[in-house]
Design a protein around this nucleic acid. Sequence first.
DNA 1: GTGAGACGTGTACGGCGTACGCGTTCAGAC
DNA 2: GTCTGAACGCGTACGCCGTACACGTCTCAC
Lengths: 239, 239
Amino acid sequence: MADEPPPVIWARLSTQGRGPVRTLDHVAITAAAVALADEDGVDAISMRKVAGRMDHSPMALYRHVGSKDDLTELMYDAVLGELDLTGIPSGSWRADVARLAQGIRRLHHAHPWIARFGHRPTLGPNALRFLEAGLACVDGLGLDIDAMMDLLSTALQFTRGFVEQELGEVDAQRRTGLDFAGYQRQTGPFISQLLQEGELPYLKRLITEAEDLPDPDVVFERRLAMVLDGLTARIGRSR
Amino acid sequence: MADEPPPVIWARLSTQGRGPVRTLDHVAITAAAVALADEDGVDAISMRKVAGRMDHSPMALYRHVGSKDDLTELMYDAVLGELDLTGIPSGSWRADVARLAQGIRRLHHAHPWIARFGHRPTLGPNALRFLEAGLACVDGLGLDIDAMMDLLSTALQFTRGFVEQELGEVDAQRRTGLDFAGYQRQTGPFISQLLQEGELPYLKRLITEAEDLPDPDVVFERRLAMVLDGLTARIGRSR
DNA sequence: GTGAGACGTGTACGGCGTACGCGTTCAGAC
DNA sequence: GTCTGAACGCGTACGCCGTACACGTCTCAC
């Protein structure tokens, strides 16, 4: 059985070695890729374009990142580094977890492409920093490590699901070039037809009774508060 | 300003018209695409392969689906149709919402590619059926339609986030051809090195103290219960 | 000095989504 | 019964994509 190279990028990141001085490294490549993704969207990320942005040949990148999948993992960890974790843990687990959730949501808004890669939990430095900070928030509550993970993960998984739904909207807008109002204008006739034809009482109520343009920040806060309430109950129970 | 075609596929689905009898329609195409995705994964979905599976030329599909994005939306609605909604609403909102969440999770496990498309909430027949059933579960609790949506969406968004994390794992396994044990074997040395070098007390606790191979079903139930607890609190408050 | 390894490049392969134009088939207008 | 034009499926082609592989060049260890 051969010694396979580790499948973890983080164990494969090389530093300047014997050859010519490098004009490229994984940090710069990652930064270029992030900038590209931020500007032009997920679908614009290509090895060729990233390389072009750095005035290098596409194949030059492979000396440093192994594959496009590797690059996306580096990108993910890189933006995780933007999270501000100062003052965490603060002593109030609820405030801290809420701050982490809000931070993660902001991160997804700043980099809407994050959600579109399916990753294992990455072992990058920023992901680890985040994990440590997150678990520190829920330490000292008399919970074992599994329960601590439950608290943290539940809040963050809700956040991820919420944000992904938001971003589906954003992404569709970018692809179709239609904002929400334009979309409504286009779908209006179809929805009217649906309501006329079928038995869709709740769709009707949504359209007639629901708040018209709810502030997504407010909705997020409201739902996050419910989730945190559920976590609180769990802490009380295990004491 | 020209009359653009509606951006909603559902308003553009055509039926047999004047020309030659069709040998293809969006239902058959969608079914073939779903089968392909189930067998070979997201990355295998291509117009060419779907067409090949039906013994047709790739371009024939475009007569019926408009674009690959359209096709993915059809696929999403198609699998939503697999959800069993009989007996919903049952009278117990909590049991119903839990059932919906479990159903959605099962759906994602059966079709792991679902999560990889960013969609607007689709207006397909099955999505509408699901929406109606979901809101029916949380009706009669004295909540307005916005609060009803909060309840339903919070549970489902948590589910989506949970499942996407699970699937990141599954997907990575398919891509690398390494199961979890193999992955652990490969990453073990790197993690040992991390623990030796850095200050990662919680990673250490996770590895030494956490349950070794937690049953994901159990973890999901436990966390979902917490979320539902949070929702319960909200209902009590608004009465 | 010299050899080996690191670095970036050029070329090429097989795949992709889909625009465009074509012949064929048939429902409805006359 | 004939004609016509819309609907249908196909062939070709374009410009992308990820990346395997072979190559020349540069630098450090010896």
